[in-house]
Nucleic acid binder design. Structure first.
Lengths: 252, 252
DNA sequence: TCAGACTTGTGAACGGCGTAAACAGTAAAC
DNA sequence: GTTTACTGTTTACGCCGTTCACAAGTCTGA
């Protein structure tokens, strides 16, 4: 039971490496359209399936792990998309990140399903679940806070909201980065959640094909949703510029 | 190659019955929380798995079949919920149906996933997919048309919409029941689709647990979404009554 | 240094899955 | 009454997650 020393031992490093390779191989597999299975992952690593149980307790744990990693990687992509806009234009950054999110989801439906439409919800594995949407959640939330800092759009006070909501915003279960958010503006989280619901709804609808292909292809519903939300996020004076940016991002 | 005669023969009837039993048993299985599998269905029917291939071409086809049937049954529930409101109150009916939809989804997450978050989207099986959401889609669309007939809320003209959208609305791929909808008000379909996206988004978010449990339990986001949509659907004069109805339906 | 403990892999096995092919019995059609 | 079509079983294949006993290799401490 030796605790980790200051310096990671050779074995610990090896172990970490194999761990990383498992996730990496799993992601590759998934990206190739193959089924994600312990045997397939092990096989591609030149190992047998039971060996993976030295690293992962079950198939579901592998899935959770991969989902988390995928979310992290995808968030990196969103961050890159946002970074193409000047730093003093959080609105433009949010738009670009949202478009990037949609594009990624449509281009990687399997990965999207894994991360955002997992039936993990059912009880137990709450911690893992909340963590899963942590990175992309963090990112979008931080971006929205920056938008608010610039435009100071209105948001409800905790006292105006239902007690259940106020309670949830006061001590959120999600690992939201509260340090970015002034205590007396917790109501912003409610705006964030509603915006997220709108984005999530349209994208999920598109990914799962519950929409006319022509509408998906044109991005019309996504555009309509964003247009509808822009004023609510204080983007009123620059509507034309932002709409143009959105359109150009969509046709990239 | 004898075509079906006027009267169904004994064999045809038997076949139909087994067919129905397959779907029924599959639904039972699903409702019990068990995995849906050919072997399990066959086993419960006192048959062996390969026998099912006389009725169903593949596992996926069984899933599609069951999904369709589940959607039909669930829609029946929504219809019942709507029917508890007077016939001249389509707004109240729509509210009740929406609440019923949400309640069903939260109470039957597996079934909901099967019908509304199926990765069927991927290419090929388009017909089946569109059919799947046909019954509930039909129902909600018809209800919304009736709301419009009463309140005459504004909707965009086809000419105002993007060509891709206009095209999709002119000859929809979805088996929308166009007979209910006057030709010169096709723009209503666009409103319907956006409303559906909002409903779908919130409910899916809740079902998949990407939301604080306290917020799910309180129904706050669902309520907020409905409140936001009511004016857009012309429900302005009766807001108080409808909001009260919504709240009471939620706590049923 | 050498024995013991711990770590990480293999191999075999269990039960379950979807699916294919060959075959048997039974009902319908001529 | 013979032929045909239908509906089921049996057997088998190759996948899956998972368990367990076992073999090596590696680290640890007297």
């Amino acid at each position: 039971m030796a605790e980790a020393s200051v310096q990671p031992t050779r074995r610990e490093r090896q172990r970490e490496a194999t761990y990383a390779e498992i996730v990496s191989v799993a992601r590759t597999l998934l990206a190739e359209g193959a089924e994600l299975s312990l045997r397939a992952v092990a096989g591609r690593m030149g190992m047998t399936a039971p060996a993976l149980y030295r690293y992962v307790a079950s198939y579901q744990e592998l899935v959770d792990l991969v989902a988390f990693e995928i979310d992290k990687a995808a968030t990196g992509g969103f961050r890159d998309a946002a970074a193409r806009q000047p730093d003093d234009d959080p609105a433009g950054q949010l738009l670009c990140a949202s478009v990037a999110f949609r594009r990624w989801a449509l281009g990687n439906p399997r990965e999207f399903s894994l991360v955002f439409a997992n039936p993990i919800a059912v009880g137990a594995c709450v911690r893992r679940e909340l963590l899963t949407s942590a990175t992309s959640g963090h990112f979008f939330n931080a971006l929205l806070v920056r938008v608010w800092e610039k435009y100071r759009f209105p948001h409800p006070e905790l006292s105006e909201l239902e007690p259940a909501v106020a309670g949830a915003l006061e001590e959120p279960l999600f690992p939201i980065d509260l340090s970015l958010l002034p205590d007396d503006h917790r109501g912003l989280l409610w705006v964030f959640m509603n915006a997220w619901a709108a984005l999530y709804g349209v994208v999920t609808l598109e990914v799962f094909g519950h929409l006319d292909p022509r509408i998906i292809e044109s991005g019309a519903m996504f555009t309509a949703m964003v247009h509808e939300w822009m004023p609510r996020l204080g983007m009123v004076d620059e509507q034309e510029r932002l709409r143009a940016l959105l359109a150009s991002e969509l046709t990239r």
